[in-house]
């Protein structure tokens, strides 16, 4: 099945530049693992990074910097870190695995967020302030309104939802500006599981927004 909805070029450029915050970056990384087209685009933006690096006006290093580094490479390399024990990826409802891009996240319990809506927050050891949420929404149900300013990234893991911009299936990523009024509704065929993160300030939205806001702050 081909992917219909991709991150914007600006998002891919920021990802390639290392300028996307952690949580949206992980949603994009999940998308990339399944999207050849976007991987090629990121590779192009990385090449742009390479050419910007070539073009920048050099800034002299401290006088002894190279000598210090040469001494350092003569010293024995630090022993390789013991590889972290490989935990199996958690299984999500419906039997799919948590995407590998999220393997360093700790998955919280599924919590009730409203009728037909459950959420599990993913925590990232390196960055506890990052807010990344798995949503599990029943057929015909609305996705929670987040109430935030800025961009919202949602990657479909299973099932599908539709909004004014089309239908989103597994592998698709919805990138929405808070200025755009859209209300995704899960398609009647079954439950939808998606990964979502946002950028920018939260503000109080509707009931779900409040719930999700308080939930995300826990």
């Amino acid at each position: 099945m081909s992917i219909q909805h991709h991150p914007s070029d600006e998002t891919l450029l920021r990802y390639a530049a290392g300028r996307l915050p952690v949580a949206p970056g992980l949603v994009v990384a999940t998308h990339l693992s399944g999207c050849v087209e976007c991987r090629a685009r990121v590779a192009t933006f990385e090449a742009m990074g390479g050419s910007l690096l070539e073009q920048v006006t050099p800034e002299p290093m401290e006088p002894e910097a190279l000598a210090r580094l040469l001494a350092q490479i003569d010293a024995p390399a630090p022993p390789p870190r013991a590889p972290a024990p490989r935990k199996p990826l958690p299984t999500l409802p419906g039997g799919i695995l948590l995407p590998r891009a999220l393997r360093h996240c700790e998955m919280g319990r599924w919590r009730w967020l409203g009728p037909g809506v459950r959420a599990s927050s993913l925590t990232i050891a390196q960055d506890p302030s990052a807010r990344l949420t798995l949503l599990r929404v029943g057929p015909g149900r609305k996705l929670p309104e987040h109430g935030h300013t800025g961009l919202e990234f949602t990657q479909i893991l299973s099932g599908s939802f539709s909004d004014g911009f089309g239908r989103y299936r597994p592998g698709d990523l919805s990138e929405m500006d808070s200025e755009i009024d859209h209300q995704p509704i899960v398609d009647p065929e079954g439950e939808c599981i998606c990964l979502t993160a946002m950028e920018g300030e939260m503000r109080i939205g509707g009931m779900f927004g409040r719930l999700l806001t308080s939930f995300a702050r826990i």
């Binding site: 990385e46 090449a47 990074g49 390479g50 690096l53 070539e54 050891a125 390196q126 960055d127």
Partner: peptide, 28 residues
């Protein structure tokens, strides 16, 4: 990837790690 692009991606990843380290949380 050419030399400049490869080196750019290494620096980018180290910068990201550095910014995370700065938040006083360090998990290699």
């Amino acid at each position: 990837a050419g030399a400049a692009t490869w080196i750019f991606t290494i620096a980018r990843n180290l910068r990201i790690d550095h910014l995370r380290r700065d938040r006083s949380v360090s998990t290699p």
